[in-house]
Amino acid sequence: MQSASTDIASRAIGIIDQLKGKEGPLLPILHELQDEFGYVPPETLPLIAQALNISRAEVHGVFTFYHDYRDHPAGRHVLKLCRAEACQSMGGDALADRARQLLGIDWHGTTADGAVTLEPVYCLGLCACAPAAMLDDEVIGRLDAEQLEEIAAEVRL
């Protein structure tokens, strides 16, 4: 029987090998790893460094520079609320406060039951139907308090 970490390593190596031939492969590899595991397992970073012949520090630097990459799994759902100006103009700040209150977590936090992670996002390109949000892959426009309460209840089911 394979241990969990060997399993992660072998799946990661498969992804790295498949993408390392691209020009500038590092971001595509990190994206694919996150798609595969839901986060970028820290033990895969040295594997990337070795395959691309760059330093571990370089890989660590890239991994930590970008807001999207996680070093641990998110909740079962991820709720992203837009915090940018167009959404602010339509009451986004009050909704954001309400969301934190409803879920009992702050930005980047995950509820204790692992149901949902709350993330700020700076613009979803839905500025003409603000305030906007994204629940997993679903985009939501003209979000209001009532809808937010429904979401907060739904994600915990």
Binding site: L26, L27, V62, F65, Y66
Partner: peptide, 24 residues
Amino acid sequence: RVGAGAYVCGEETALLESLEGRRG
């Protein structure tokens, strides 16, 4: 190619760095 949530990568030279696989 898809960015990873860094606004500064809209700046053209940061974008090129990112495309090459580096920090933006």
